[in-house]
Each structure stands twice: as C-alpha cells, then as structure tokens.
C-alpha cells in the first residue's frame, strides 16, 4: 500500500459510494439466485421455505411453463447469427470509413440514429413493413434485422475506437515488405485487432440474446427467450420465474467469462510472439 498516505476522507467516502453502487447493481440478481433454490412450498419472497432444486426441475417440465427449451435454442442461434453478422459487417464498414468515401457521414449518422431511435419504433416499423409486404415475420428474418439495427451501431463505434488507436506504421511496414492489400489485412491488421473484435462479438451476441423490445412485433409465431420470460411475468407467480432468471443470467455470465478469457489468451499469445 504505497499510495496509502495520499488517501484522505474523500477516497473512503467515494469507495463506500462505489461499493453501495456495486451492491445496488448485483444485489437484486443475487437475491433471486438465492430464492430460486426455494423449497417446493416456498414463495416469491423471503423467508426461504427449505432448500431444493424443485423450481429448476419444474422449469424443464413442459406443461409447467411455456416452451423454455425451444425459445432458448432460438435465442441462442439468433444470437450467434447476429454476432457473426455484426463482427463481419462492422469490420468491413470500419475499413470503408478508414479509407473515406462519399456519403460516409450520411451513413455514419444513419448508424447513430439506429442507436437513438426507440426500440419500439423499430419493432413497429419492421412489423408493419412485413405485414404490408405480406411476409410472415419470423425470428430468423424480421427479428434478425431488428436486432442488427441495435448491435451494428455498437459494433461500428467499437471498430472506430479500435482503428483510431491503430498504429498505421504496421501496415506501411507490411506494404514496404511487399505485402498486397489483402495480405496486409489478413496477416497484419486482423491479428492485431482480433482481441478487440472479441468485444464486438460479445456485444453482438448478448445484446441480441437479451433483446426484448425489438423482438416484440418481429419474432413471429415462435417466441425468443426474453419474450418467453416476459410472458411468464404476467402469469407465473412461483419461484420458477427466478429459476429461469438465474439460469439465463448464469448463461450470460458464462458467455461474458468466455469472451474475457478469449481476450486474455489472445493478448498473451500476441505478447509472447
């Protein structure tokens, strides 16, 4: 603790505030995680009425709640597709913006407006568009497009931030050594930005996996997981709701953890070279 003498009352006050903020962020989620282990007779609030896995088993009984397995696999597949498309499209667009092109600022502001237009409007607009065109909305078509309007702006902004910090002399060196444009991208640029692209992928997957408002009118006849959970909030009054919440959050944590681990491994491998 070499810096200890510099820490005054302000530090401890702010540290206390920060701790409360973290408690505020994680406390409720932790509480439902505990409550999802309620005994079979337990209710939605404390006290715990015994400890059991009853509500987790209950989750997998098909008649107890809606189609949990189906909605999970749809959300999973959709999230993966959105993730891949987000990474590819935002990186290629990032290259375009780096070179500069006519209409670039129009496209940039269109992308930013995609971020600030309320989700319910995207949902309504795409729903109406499919309705008028006479196409049945589905999670793999209309909902995919709706999710991309939310993930692509994040992806592009992150790619901008990556390229703004990118040292152009690496590319010049590659070019001087005789590498073609594609070789430069493939063997120099992409390996360098790869750890940051994991971040883009994480945004793409999780934002789609958790999206509710943009799926509302676009998912068609089969629910994605957030729609299923929302449906449960109105007609399920047992801790099975918490069990589902806990499982979904645990899955999110696994995804986040995997992404962070991937970044760490990629960074270390690059440093080791």
């Amino acid at each position: 603790m070499t810096s200890a003498p510099r820490r005054g009352a302000a530090f401890y006050l702010l540290a206390g505030f920060f701790t409360l903020f973290i408690l505020f962020l994680y406390g409720p989620t932790l509480t439902i995680a505990i409550l999802s282990f309620q005994g079979p007779q337990g209710g939605l609030t404390f006290p715990m009425n015994g400890v059991s896995l009853h509500w987790f088993f209950n989750l997998f009984e098909r008649q107890a709640v809606g189609d949990f397995g189906g909605s999970f696999s749809r959300s999973l597949v959709l999230g993966l597709v959105v993730m891949v498309v987000t990474v590819v499209v935002s990186v290629t667009a990032g290259f375009a913006f780096r070179r500069g092109f006519r209409g670039g600022s129009v496209l940039f502001y269109l992308t930013v407006s995609s971020l600030v237009i309320p989700s319910i409007l995207i949902s309504l607009g795409i729903g109406l568009m499919f309705n008028i065109a006479g196409i049945e909305p589905a999670w793999y078509s209309s909902a995919l497009g709706a999710h991309l309007t939310w993930t692509l702006p994040f992806g592009l902004l992150i790619v901008f931030a990556i390229f703004n910090r990118f040292d152009r002399s690496f590319e010049e060196a590659a070019r001087d050594l005789g590498a073609g444009p594609w070789q430069t991208v493939r063997h120099v640029v992409l390996p360098i930005i790869l750890p940051s692209l994991v971040g883009v992928a994480l945004f793409g997957f999780t934002l789609s996996y958790d999206e509710f408002a943009r799926s509302l009118m676009t998912a068609g006849s089969y629910n994605t997981l957030p729609l299923e959970i929302y449906g449960m909030t109105t007609n399920v009054t047992t801790p099975v709701l918490y069990a589902l919440g806990t499982l979904t959050t645990a899955f999110s944590f696994v995804v986040i953890g995997a992404a962070l681990a991937a970044v760490a491994v990629l960074r270390r491998r690059r440093a080791g070279r």
């Binding site: 994680y26 409720p28 509480t31 439902i32 609030t45 404390f46 709701l241 959050t249 999110s252 986040i256």
Partner: peptide, 17 residues
C-alpha cells in the same frame, strides 16, 4: 457486466426487495 445480462430479469429481481 450487468449491461450484458437481461434487463427483464434485472427488473424481476426487484420483486423480492
């Protein structure tokens, strides 16, 4: 990290509180 988890569940989580 909470940004990458579900908003709906984070809202439901206030019920026991």
């Amino acid at each position: 990290i909470p940004f990458w988890t579900s908003n709906i569940i984070r809202m439901i989580a206030w019920i026991p509180f």
